[in-house]
């Protein structure tokens, strides 16, 4: 039994239908306690104040924003190479969640930036990269929306996703070069464990796990919807052909 079998719509619909309630439950069980712990049961940081608690949303959403694009790249490649419908539908489903995560990361970043640096927006490399990522998501989704034939749309958006990934990476380097970090980005980074004490770090990990599970649940729901839409489109064409 190979992993590819789950790329078959029949298998996927059956399995995802069974798994979905559990994933939703697990997401709720990690995300809600994680956020409550982070917001209400961590000590106030001496020099940051309460505003630091926004990292429990900001950091996971920012991580997801990037990782979801990476997942879309992989699923787009799978569609181009192996033509599995589930794969490309999952990419489309993920895009909407990815763009939402990007917007959340940008907005929470702005809210946090105001007390931290005294400004909602700075053309800092990290912020700029997220803005560019947001534009890439927009273009990808707009291309999906513009093309009527689902297979053509799948092919073209996959090509865009692959080429776009290369340019997104280039943009990241270009932006770093363009504005060589006017402020220290390290304090934002969650992988610098030495910067974040365990009392903050553990609930953060729980929130990250929660966001990942939330994403899995949402992407399953949306992929199921997308597959239904493909079938709907297909049935409509058949009806039209019978009339003709």
């Amino acid at each position: 039994m190979s992993l590819w079998e789950f790329a078959n719509p029949v298998k996927f619909m059956a399995l995802s239908g069974k798994v979905l309630p559990w994933v939703i439950g697990l997401a709720a069980l990690t995300l809600i306690p994680g956020l409550i712990w982070g917001f209400f049961f961590t000590p106030e940081a001496t020099n940051f104040g309460n505003s630091v608690k926004i990292i429990y949303i900001h950091v996971p959403s920012a991580m997801m924003a990037i990782n979801i694009w990476a997942m879309m790249l992989v699923t787009s490649l799978i569609w181009i190479v192996r033509r599995h419908h589930v794969s490309v539908r999952a990419a489309k489903a993920a895009a909407l969640i990815g763009v939402t995560m990007t917007v959340i990361a940008l907005i929470t970043g702005a809210i946090w930036g105001e007390p931290m640096w005294g400004t909602y927006w700075a053309w800092d490399p990290r912020l700029t990269s997220f803005l560019i990522l947001f534009l890439f998501y927009l273009g990808y989704m707009a291309l999906w929306a513009a093309i009527e034939n689902p297979d053509t749309a799948a092919d073209l958006t996959s090509v865009l996703c692959i080429v776009g990934s290369v340019f997104a990476l280039l943009s990241r380097y270009a932006v770093n070069f363009w504005n060589q970090g006017l402020h220290q980005g390290a304090s934002l980074s969650m992988d610098r464990e030495e910067h974040v004490a365990d009392v903050y770090y553990l609930p953060l990990l729980l929130c990250i796990a929660g966001f990942i599970l939330l994403f899995v649940a949402l992407v399953l729901i949306r992929t199921r919807t997308e597959l239904r839409l493909v079938r709907l489109h297909r049935l409509e064409i058949r009806e039209r052909m019978k009339d003709a």
Partner: peptide, 20 residues
């Protein structure tokens, strides 16, 4: 366009019909 008709090959969307 009728899926019950004998078809040379399973058309690419046959999986979708089964899935639903």
């Amino acid at each position: 366009g009728d899926k019950t008709a004998p078809s040379q090959q399973r058309d690419r969307y046959a999986d979708f019909d089964e899935a639903f």
